[in-house]
């Protein structure tokens, strides 16, 4: 309970105007997802009510990922600036360094990931709440675990205390990652159906991105989710440990 209160208090101070980025991001994501995903959803519903095809959710998720990717990038930039100049003030509050790290994880990873999954589903729920139970869950899980990993790495870059680097890295992983993954998979012949260890590694680490470019992970759906989830957990645990033990406030 104390942790929740500390998190709320800290976030209300540190995020400031950035806090509006979440509802605005959710607004943009729900509009975009509704515009590009509802068509596929309604045409499927007409055939078999209660089943929403993956493409109806994937288009919305991709746009939602884009919107919240920029929100996370902005927040990570704020953290970089804070670590450079104002962290002394925040860390002088009755708050442990680990709580400070968890607060940032909540603000820049957990809440954005939760919202990017929820925002595309809201227009479907408003249309007919029964439809939500028919949504295929694999794309949602893939997107959640992959972004928990990718957004975590953006937070890691903010530890370098340089906003410019955060921006360059953030733009790279949000905008260019599908292209880079596509090029690397194309180089090993994944698009012609060849499965190599590269396709398996990329498909497991980045299941949502590889599915988006048409070279989805093969085998049991939960394996890539587990691998990407472990990567996300490792990245976030590392972030908390690094802030708790190695962060020196000057």
């Amino acid at each position: 309970m104390r942790l929740l209160e500390v998190l709320e208090e800290y976030l209300s101070v540190s995020l400031g105007r950035n806090a509006y980025a979440f509802p605005l991001g959710a607004l943009a994501a729900s509009i975009a997802a509704g515009l590009f995903g509802l068509g596929a959803a309604v045409s499927q519903v007409a055939l078999s009510p209660g089943q929403i095809p993956p493409n109806a959710v994937s288009a919305g998720l991709a746009l939602s990922h884009l919107v919240f990717g920029f929100v996370v990038m902005a927040l990570a930039g704020t953290l970089a600036g804070e670590l450079k100049s104002e962290a002394t003030f925040h860390l002088s509050l009755p708050m442990r360094k680990e709580e400070y790290a968890v607060a940032w994880l909540a603000a820049a990873v957990w809440v954005p990931v939760a919202l990017e999954i929820v925002a595309p589903l809201v227009p479907i729920a408003v249309l007919d709440p029964r439809l939500v139970t028919g949504v295929v869950v694999e794309p949602l899980i893939y997107r959640a675990v992959e972004d928990a990993f990718v957004f975590g790495t953006i937070l890691w870059v903010s530890l370098l205390r340089r906003k410019g680097l955060v921006t360059v890295y953030g733009l790279g992983v949000i905008l260019l990652l599908p292209m880079m993954v596509g090029l690397s998979l194309g180089a090993v012949g994944a698009f012609s159906g060849r499965r190599t260890w590269v396709t398996r590694v990329v498909g497991s680490a980045l299941p949502a991105t590889s599915s988006m470019i048409g070279v989805g992970p093969s085998g049991a759906w939960w394996v890539p989710a587990l691998v990407s989830g472990l990567l996300a957990a490792g990245t976030q645990a590392g972030f908390v440990l690094w802030i708790g033990r190695r962060l020196e406030v000057t």
Binding site: E8, S12, P23, A26, L27, S30, G34, P123
Partner: peptide
Amino acid sequence: MTALRAAGILALCLSVGSLLAL
């Protein structure tokens, strides 16, 4: 901004967003 207020604004935005999308 408190968490309660943020959640309220979020719900309002999602409501408007859904209506616009539909």
